[in-house]
């Protein structure tokens, strides 16, 4: 999923300052799973904002809603009127959802309530970690199913560097596992260590972000 975290409340509060009629719009997909921008988080943020406004004597009507996904046009139909009635939309979707909402309602001010982080997995309740960098040319088959691009701090294809210690990455030993130690251990357990003796050539980065903004066109799916 795409993971995200809520922006600091002070930043959100500053962003929505001046709005008289604010819609806080949640997203029912990734950010609901990572507990950053789903229905529940919309409710909490709305309550905190109302409380803060009351204390400051600010008058702001706050409407709450959450749609299935903010990265698909069809789901916006249900909230079209609410969006158009508001003088600002505080979207609790990832960066994709915020932009898509703003594209569809081009006269509307759409503000981000979250900081979008990475493609990750729920490692345990309350912990999400990055797994994929979206490089557009998947190398997982070569590395025992562990991605060096996303999970090595330097994206080394011929790792590990000298900063691997006790299975941890020197960049942040408390929070980051050395991706290359993981690759080494996995290939060792699969009896495939010899694979790591092969020199991995320079990568073609053009299929990812370095090739410019991405676009997928499926001729067979076009209407």
């Amino acid at each position: 999923m795409i993971t995200a975290v809520q922006k600091p409340f002070e930043e959100i509060s500053e962003m929505v300052k001046g709005s008289q009629n604010l819609l806080i719009l949640g997203c029912g997909s990734c950010v609901t799973v990572c507990m950053a921008g789903g229905e529940k988080e919309v409710g909490i943020l709305a309550s905190i904002l109302r409380l803060a406004n009351k204390e400051k004597g600010v008058s702001m009507e706050i409407v709450e809603d959450t749609i299935e996904r903010q990265c698909d046009r069809e789901f916006f139909d249900d909230v079209k009127e609410k969006i158009e009635r508001a003088d600002a939309v505080l979207s609790m979707a990832c960066g994709v959802g915020v932009q898509f909402c703003s594209e569809i309602f081009s006269r509307q001010i759409v503000l981000p309530a979250l900081n979008t982080r990475f493609y990750g997995a729920t490692e345990q309740q309350g912990v999400w970690t990055e797994r994929c960098a979206g490089c557009g040319d998947c190398v997982l088959a070569k590395f025992g199913g562990i991605c060096p691009v996303a999970r090595c701090s330097k994206s080394l294809l011929n790792g590990p560097c000298g900063g691997s210690q006790d299975g941890k990455c020197e960049v942040d030993p408390e929070n980051i596992d050395c991706g290359w130690q993981l690759i080494y251990d996995r290939l060792k357990s699969l009896n495939l260590l010899s694979r790591l003796e092969e020199n991995e050539p320079v990568k073609d980065w053009s299929s990812g972000r370095d090739g410019g903004p991405g676009k997928i066109v499926r001729e067979d799916m076009l209407l």
């Binding site: 590990p160 560097c161 000298g162 080494y184 790591l196 003796e197």
Partner: peptide, 15 residues
Amino acid sequence: PFGDPFEFRVIRLAK
């Protein structure tokens, strides 16, 4: 020669 995993260090030199 002192980084981890130790057994891999010489493989990396070979590379």
